[in-house]
């Protein structure tokens, strides 16, 4: 797990870049942690209504409440830290969000395709949904030349129909069938 850590840091660290990004990053932390504080506080109250037990001093809600209480404190701590960062950096130049979204357009495009794919799996079945997703995602990621397109088609068929066959007939695990199967 930790084997991921340094790579994540280098890839995702927008913080080190420029003051604009630092301020925007701090704002993102404030929004995220603020939302989490509200969510956790609501859940903390909800957990208080969970039934207790006559056999044990701690009921169903005690452990989650303990965790949520510490989480709220930590979220607030992060917000204080980030508020300092936010205050110490100047306001971002106009168009920063637009530039950021444009830079990440491919990731968001793939994410949107992936979301559509997951939603369509029960409706279309694993085979067809995977086939469409694999073709579209490979096109979105830059497959253009005729030879690459042919390879992309083979990969799409192999990892949709082939994977379905492997799980159904070899591992005896039936993937979602859909109305066309």
């Amino acid at each position: 797990m930790s084997s991921q850590a340094p790579l994540q840091q280098t890839r995702s660290s927008d913080r080190g870049a420029d003051p604009d990004t630092r301020r925007a990053n701090a704002l993102a932390h404030l929004v995220l942690n603020g939302a989490l504080v509200v969510l956790f506080a609501t859940l903390f109250v909800h957990a208080g209504a969970l039934p207790s037990s006559m056999w044990e001093p701690l009921g169903s809600g005690s452990f989650p409440r303990l965790v949520l209480a510490v989480l709220i404190m930590i979220n607030l701590g992060i917000m204080v830290q980030e508020w300092r960062h936010y205050r110490s950096n100047t306001a971002a130049a106009p168009g920063l969000v637009r530039r950021w979204l444009w830079r990440h357009r491919l990731a968001f495009g793939v994410l949107a395709l992936f979301a559509l794919y997951i939603i369509s799996v029960p409706a279309l079945g694993f085979r067809l949904a995977s086939l469409f997703f694999l073709v579209l995602a490979q096109l979105a990621l830059g497959v253009r030349r005729p030879r690459s397109l042919a390879i992309a088609a083979v990969i799409a068929v192999t990892f949709s129909f082939g994977l379905d066959w492997l799980f159904r007939d070899v591992f005896i695990i039936s993937l979602p069938r859909g109305p066309f199967s």
Partner: peptide, 29 residues
Amino acid sequence: SVIVPVVLVCCVVGAFALNNRVTDIYLLL
């Protein structure tokens, strides 16, 4: 361009095959 879509499909299979539940792939997303 090949690895990312293929591994995403494998992720869906892995999440579904554990309990045969479609809701698990929504959670995955």
